[in-house]
Design a protein around this nucleic acid. Structure first.
Lengths: 334, 334
DNA sequence: CTGAAAGCGCTAACAT
DNA sequence: ATGTTAGCGCTTTCAG
């Protein structure tokens, strides 16, 4: 790598002159500036990021902690984060907590050594389960801001980006009720997460608010067992089910495929709406009608919040919770 | 953040003494070392990463360039990379090329300013299409090593990690032939990638090597149109198809679902084998029999190669190509 | 055994 | 308009 010193030597000027010239300082004469810039360009000079960070005490890097990169929702959020961060001149360092509180703590610790200016993260499943959030507050105490998305925690003071999970599920459930569905089941493999609970509440509320007569029917999928078998059990045990709301990424698609195998016609006999993204929705015939969570936008909004926070553009005593709108995308299964 | 200087002041010793003590130098007396370490622990001292990088001219950070994070294969590789990198004390900075050569170049450029010690990447689709690889060589010229995985390029000299795509597809095709399948189609939405071509070759070779009478039957899915429709067309036009080899992540699952809709029994009338990962394989009934690419292992191997290269443990004049073994996982569709 | 000093690459206050 | 100097936090050589 070529350095300022190298350039200075070659031109017979001082390092600070070169630095100023490249930073468009008005102190430097037109001619010198030209010569310096030309040579810098010729040698493809790039300021050393580490030196810059050390000097300015800011890394222009965002730490991103993702619970599970195999979840398409998170993958899409990451995509949005990366896009927006690059646009604003930030790099991202990605850590995968793999739903473990230990890894989450570790990542936070590790990157709090001057590696990043701030964090964007979704809380791991285990962390929500054991309700232990000290590590976030410790990070904040070090003056490293955190933006939480999707999996957020009520009583932690930080900027947040979420969708209105309850409202979205309520709307989806209502849509089925409006289609005169009489027995609507709710399927979830994320009932231990806050978002899972919110979605369940949305489902329950929709039933209450309508003149719907049946009791709620909820299948909580056990991740340790075959999900297809569990869904098949539900459909066999309750042959009058004519509607399904799926709270997670894959259950909706799976439900359609299992139902078809049982000879149930979709959407004639059974309507299904899920939280899947388009690619997963395509993996059934008919395709799954789904709730679009606008994951990319969640990512982009998170970056903007964090960067504004870092630039002190936000009120230091007030944190905001941004709610990203969702839409139902009609793909034929409802 | 607490610094060496802070610790030194509090203890009334010099910065260098503190530094040496914390680095277990034999120059420092037992007693002093104890005191220093105790205080460092008390204040939870962590050496500033940027200062360390600047000083040592190594960042302990790996740049990772992924073409498409929504592809589960890449997501899994990333997971493996992250795991192994963390284990070895490296951070990863992730860039998503989004299959674009421009973004790929940009990322390479951007991170070559002392942000990373080396790269792990899979070549973007566009890059393979236009066959332009100068940017990789430029990076290497700057003494920044590259490890390529999955999407590699024959004539670029660097360490590589791949699976034997041709062999794997050949074996899968043979498996269907051994089951007395008479008309086996090959479906791919990645025929523009090298790996796609290799898989096609594997399919063709398997047919040639057996006493299989039919001509190859190949469907190249047009990404701009509905994939389900294209697969349905294939099955309708060739009602005697009794076997399918799917070259990409989703076509196999999709083929099963489309076939079922057409009243075709799986695997009685039609056997399907694909390159999907387990979660996608679960999205059909029966589940898709698939070729396990061991994505995580690819990631881990890549990290190990790169780190060994960085530590000069590898012969500088010789680059290796590592082939990760694949397995067919029988899920019921073959 | 401990400390002073130089230097990694850069910026910026302060001379000249 | 240009140069000198100090310093970001750290390691390491060299003196003491």
């Amino acid at each position: 790598m070529i350095t300022l010193k190298d350039l200075a030597q070659k031109l017979g000027v001082s390092v600070s002159t070169v630095s100023k010239a490249l930073n468009d300082s008005s102190e430097i004469s037109e001619g010198t500036a030209q010569r310096i810039k030309a040579l810098a360009k010729y040698y493809n000079y790039q300021p050393n990021r580490m030196a810059l960070s050390l000097k300015k005490n800011q890394t222009k890097t965002i730490g991103v902690i993702i619970p599970n990169i195999l979840n398409r929702f998170f993958a899409k959020v990451l995509f949005g984060i990366q896009e927006e961060a690059t646009k604003l001149g930030y790099n991202i360092i990605v850590c995968l907590s793999n739903e473990s509180i230990e890894k989450e703590k570790e990542s936070l610790q590790l990157l709090s050594n001057g590696s990043v200016d701030g964090f964007i993260l979704a809380i791991s499943e285990e962390t929500q389960l054991v309700s232990e959030f000290d590590h976030f507050q410790e990070t904040q105490k070090k003056d490293i801001p955190i933006v939480m998305f999707d999996r957020v925690q009520e009583n932690i003071e930080c900027d947040k980006v979420i969708i209105d999970d309850q409202e979205a599920t309520l709307k989806a459930t209502k849509a089925l009720i409006d289609k005169h569905r009489k027995k609507i089941a709710f399927i979830s493999n994320i009932d231990n997460l806050n978002v899972g609970k919110l979605r369940e509440t949305g489902y329950r509320k929709a039933l209450q608010l309508s003149n719907y007569t049946e009791a709620p029917l909820i299948l909580k999928i056990d991740g340790n067992k075959d999900a297809q078998v569990q869904i098949k059990g539900l459909l066999k045990d309750n042959s009058s089910i004519d509607g399904i709301i799926a709270a997670d990424n894959v259950s909706g698609t799976m439900a359609i495929n299992v139902a078809i195998q049982l000879g149930i016609k979709i959407p004639d006999h059974l309507s299904v709406i899920g939280f899947a993204d388009q690619a997963i929705s395509n993996l059934s015939v008919p395709k799954l009608t789904s709730i679009n969570q606008n994951a990319e936008e969640i990512g982009k909004t998170s970056v903007n919040l964090l960067v504004n926070r870092l630039k002190n553009k936000l009120d230091p005593d007030h944190f905001s919770t941004n709610i990203i709108a969702t839409q139902i995308i009609n793909n034929g299964s409802d």
